[in-house]
Write a protein that binds this DNA or RNA. Structure first.
Lengths: 392, 392
DNA sequence: CAGATTCATTCATCACGTCAAGTAAAGATG
DNA sequence: CATCTTTACTTGACGTGATGAATGAATCTG
């Protein structure tokens, strides 16, 4: 058993499986009375008193102020709450040319953020910039105390998983077989885990977002590419060698626009924001147009932009339907830097979703989740957080 | 804890989690020494002697004859083996017009089989025919003793799962919300579970077939339709309301042949054996041709048949690639009544598989598994078997 | 033959969670 | 208003089920 919960002044909390599951249950499903938690986890009430005591003594759990809640018969329950401020995590998202980093607490709330352009992809330089970003986020707590950094998460596009400190392949950074996790861990002296960027985002939804309460769901992101993260049976699907959720080049229509790889009509060529921009700007011969300009044109009813976004929505609907047909999730969450385009292509999306959903099923429930620019880095922090609580 | 292992003469074996997992490990991964099983399951060696003793005493496990195996240093191991004959299961597959049933032992070996045309879909008649089939398979052990029937499994196309005795929807049988499991259980006095037919087949591969040793794989079946079963993280994926693996109507090409639902170029319209037959027989204006006739024509190089089978292989490759891209399995198993067609379209299949596999991955490993006509019913038996051992 | 090595068993021990009993704190009831 | 009912929580004895250490068993090695 690890020393996940240890702290100056208090003795480290030794963890049993029951303690882990209780703590995670309380973290994810909000304040819960001991009795309720016992029911949910199929434990005895007495087990809950015993299990929660060390957490309360060490300050990781606290009894909620007796809120005069719903009047009910019997002794009022005493909800327990995780003190999110007692732990701190840093999440870092690496892209080809920039580094985003956030510091969060145990509840994945962002308390500080920073970003910087990457000098280059030389490992020493990247490592230096990572260390610097961590220092910036954790340095000098002006005034009050702050808990020590518990873990660091780093996410990037490519095949990485928390169980392995090595980046196997990352096309955009030009890395392969790079032990980035170990390197950072050595440099900052804090446990460090790697993860695929989309799967890290999926973890955010699983514990702190729309996925809470669902044992299976899919997250589909739209932006520079199309991503897909899957949770099935309460577990994130990693795939062999971290290669699950590769929906970017799904064949939509073999006469459609072309992607960088020469696929005619693949999902990416229809849905990714660069492809949409290229398509609209190219057709109108206005290379200055940004993606958001194109979106504005579509909103204003410009026929070219409208058509491009309708086709994007339609392709996205087909992607979602395909994923849903194969994996049968309870819910699909739509997110990513470009989700805000959903508003202008919702009809096309829903039509395609219904059309491609298997005839024996009803279309999967879809929720659209607005996207903050630091969400990618937050995902990395949640990867670190999950790893620390479940395996630390 | 259940009474999975109980028997006249011996006291019932009470099961702990460790006992369950040890027994299943020995069943699935063949004869194994106690020491080896202990390593695999992360148990202490002493736990293994303790856990296996009651099974040995009750006759469910036995020590293998000291085979003069690989000469190795140290005391020779004493492999333990499941006595498969000590339990018996019946599996039943229902189609629109026929009932297939098999009796198997604990190792899913088929010991008896029977089939009969369904009179109609009236529940009382179907129930009667099910009971009769079970009686035929379990009646009068000529001569020797036979273990009593442990459980019955029933599989059908539609949304059914072992955790629920109700058939929610089965288009081909015209049923909905029918508590078939409870009805059969009452009629024959033996635990009865339902399952989707493709998922039942997937269980066979998981415990007794190509899936052994893989924590994630996909099974794709071709025949009257296209099916897909998924195992991810050692667990069969059921999907919400049992609706996972619906690849039949995956869009391949919106100018292709049409399926019964009016989808142009969906997978089913390319790959299912009736569609292939229709296509070849229709083009040649020879309505008498059977599927196997068409296959023979293709094998002989007949241009029409060749083309149809090439397109089928190509579509199938795209289906496999799509499933693999999304779920990242270690392995894809190809099976079903019509898998033997693989031989004539292997090239087209492999080409399409490579073409549609995401560029950052290598194509998934594919194995072709010949299909016996009673395999569907065997799947149902394995559903019963798994349910009995894991939850009974 | 003693030594090394691996497998298997025995038995004391112990960790972790349940059970039973009791306490606490409210609303319901007459 | 005293009492009952209901639900929440706590406490300490207990038991189940696994571990660890010591031992024995069976083989190859030199």
């Amino acid at each position: 058993m690890g020393r996940v919960f240890s702290q100056a002044g208090t003795s480290p909390v030794r963890l049993t499986d029951a303690m882990r599951s209780v703590f995670v249950e309380l973290l994810v499903h909000g304040p819960l009375s001991r009795a309720e938690a016992a029911r949910r986890l199929a434990l005895s009430p007495s087990a809950l008193t015993k299990v929660t005591k060390p957490f309360i003594e060490a300050g990781y759990l606290r009894e909620q102020a007796a809120g005069e809640g719903t009047a009910t018969v019997g002794r009022p329950s005493q909800p327990l709450e995780v003190d999110a401020s007692r732990m701190s995590f840093v999440g870092i998202k690496l892209t080809a040319d920039e580094l985003f980093a956030v510091r969060t607490d145990l509840a994945a709330a962002v308390h500080a953020e920073t970003s910087r352009p990457l000098i280059d992809h030389e490992i020493d330089n990247v490592l230096g910039q990572i260390v610097q970003a961590i220092a910036d986020l954790t340095g000098d707590p002006a005034g009050g105390e702050r808990p020590p950094l518990s873990a660091v998460g780093i996410s990037l596009a490519g095949t990485a998983t928390p169980s392995d400190p090595v980046v196997h392949t990352s096309p955009f950074l030009g890395w392969s077989q790079l032990p980035l996790g170990s390197l950072v861990e050595e440099a900052v002296g804090v446990p460090t885990v790697l993860d695929n960027d989309v799967r890290a985002l999926t973890r955010v939804q699983q514990w702190f977002g729309e996925g809470v309460g669902h044992s299976s769901f899919a997250l589909i992101t739209v932006g520079a590419g199309i991503g897909c993260g899957l949770v099935i049976g309460d577990r994130l699907v990693t795939g062999q060698a971290g290669a699950a959720g590769l929906v970017g080049h799904l064949a939509i229509d073999d006469r459609g626009p072309m992607c960088e790889l020469g696929h005619r009509g693949c999902a990416r060529a229809y849905v990714s924001s660069p492809a949409i921009r290229r398509s609209v700007a190219g057709t109108l011969d206005r290379p200055d147009l940004t993606f958001d300009d194109c979106l504005a044109l579509a909103r204003d009813g410009h026929p070219v932009a409208r058509r491009v976004f309708d086709e994007a929505g339609s392709a996205l609907g087909q992607v979602v339907a395909t994923v849903a047909n194969i994996t049968g999730p309870e819910l699909v969450i739509l997110s990513g830097e470009a989700v805000h385009m959903y508003a202008v292509c919702a009809d096309a999306f829903q039509t395609a979703l219904a059309r491609h959903t298997h005839w024996t099923s009803t279309p999967v429930r879809v929720v659209v989740k607005p996207f903050a620019f630091n969400e990618w880095a937050r995902g990395a922090a949640v990867t670190a957080l999950q790893h620390q609580l479940l395996h630390g």
